[in-house]
Simulated assay, not measured.
Amino acid sequence: MPVTGPPLLGRTQSPVGWVVGFVRAPAADVLEADLGWRRGLGQRLEVSPPTPFPACLSLLEPLEAPWTTELLVDCGPWTAYLNNHKDGGDPTAAAGELARQLGTRCVIAVHSPPHGPGHASTQMWVHGPDGEPPLMAERTLAASRQDGRWSWYESGRPLPFEDVARYGARRIRDRFDRALLVAHLHALGIEVDDPTWFGPGVAVRQVVPWPTRPESVEEALERLEVGSR
């Protein structure tokens, strides 16, 4: 999976990384929590050696549903969490649970470019110990298009760096786009468009007795009709 630019959130590795979780804890702590949690559930696991970024993204192939493989990437004070769900990843529940166990903040970043019959989405969810139970949500922003129809959702108190006037734009697609998502992540200390910010990644694969529906990245792109309007 060669990389010539930012790999995640709808860039060179699409659809891998359309949805990425960031847990504010060292990767070793997140990995320990993940392994303990999953082994406690009786899951049989295979753990890869650390692999440099972005080569570690290939450990998520093939893409599957249900997903079986998680990738934890060392980002210093943060850990990036991805998995191999074939529709761009599905880290929301697992990354949130790991953050809850560690008593820390979790940020879910979403950017899926135009695909299928009129779909697209840019979202940011911030959860943490100071958030509102039961999900401990602090702030949610979401500009989404389903079947050609745009919708806007926001909740929680604006974060200090937000320019809330932006959310009054007439066109929903202009209220929260990828550039603003990346700027918000930067303000939180997450340098998602800088490949050098990411350290090595470790894959945790569940060995499951049931069949999955595997796809290559190329097959997923064709099925999702990426680039359609």
Rank of each mutant, 00 (worst) to 15 (best):
L31Q: 08
Q206W: 06
P50S: 04
L180A: 11
D34I: 00
A165C: 07
F22V: 06
Q101G: 04
P117V: 00
Q206R: 15
V73T: 10
K86L: 09
R205V: 03
D74H: 02
T196Y: 10
E225Q: 15
V16N: 03
R24F: 04
R171Q: 15
E154W: 03
Q146L: 13
V192K: 07
A94P: 04
V164W: 09
R139T: 04
A25T: 04
Y81D: 06
G116K: 00
G96K: 00
L141Y: 02
V208A: 14
T68R: 12
R223F: 04
R213N: 13
R24P: 03
V226Y: 12
D130A: 06
S155W: 05
T4G: 14
V226G: 08
R175N: 13
E97I: 00
F22P: 05
V208T: 15
A120C: 11
V16K: 04
L41C: 11
C106F: 05
A28F: 01
Q13C: 15
A143G: 13
D163N: 11
W37H: 12
Q206H: 12
G36E: 10
W152S: 11
V204E: 09
H184S: 07
L35W: 08
Y153C: 14
W18C: 10
S58D: 14
R213L: 13
R173I: 11
A165S: 14
T140H: 10
L141H: 05
A142G: 14
P134R: 13
P211R: 05
A183P: 10
V208R: 15
Q43M: 09
R39W: 06
L60R: 07
R171T: 13
G42V: 07
V217D: 08
D147F: 11
N84F: 06
P158K: 09
P77Y: 08
Q123W: 06
E218N: 07
A28Q: 03
A94R: 11
F161I: 02
W152H: 10
E215A: 09
A33T: 02
G118V: 01
G17V: 01
T4F: 14
Q101Y: 02
R11T: 09
S48N: 06
V107S: 10
V202W: 01
E132F: 04
P209N: 12
G227Q: 13
P49T: 12
V23N: 08
H115S: 07
G36L: 01
P7K: 02
H127D: 10
P66D: 04
S151R: 15
G10P: 02
V217Y: 09
R223W: 07
A27T: 01
S155H: 07
H111W: 01
C56I: 06
G40M: 06
V208M: 13
T196L: 13
E97G: 08
L57R: 03
K86W: 11
D194E: 14
D34A: 09
P200C: 03
P66V: 02
A109L: 01
L63P: 12
M136V: 01
R173C: 15
P50K: 08
R100A: 15
V19D: 01
P77E: 07
D193V: 03
L224E: 05
A95K: 00
E154V: 04
P195Y: 10
C106A: 14
E215T: 11
L185I: 03
P91E: 01
V16Y: 08
C75E: 10
M1S: 14
C106N: 07
L82Y: 05
P117L: 01
G10S: 07
I172P: 02
P6E: 13
V47D: 10
L180N: 04
L102D: 05
W67C: 12
P158E: 06
T122R: 13
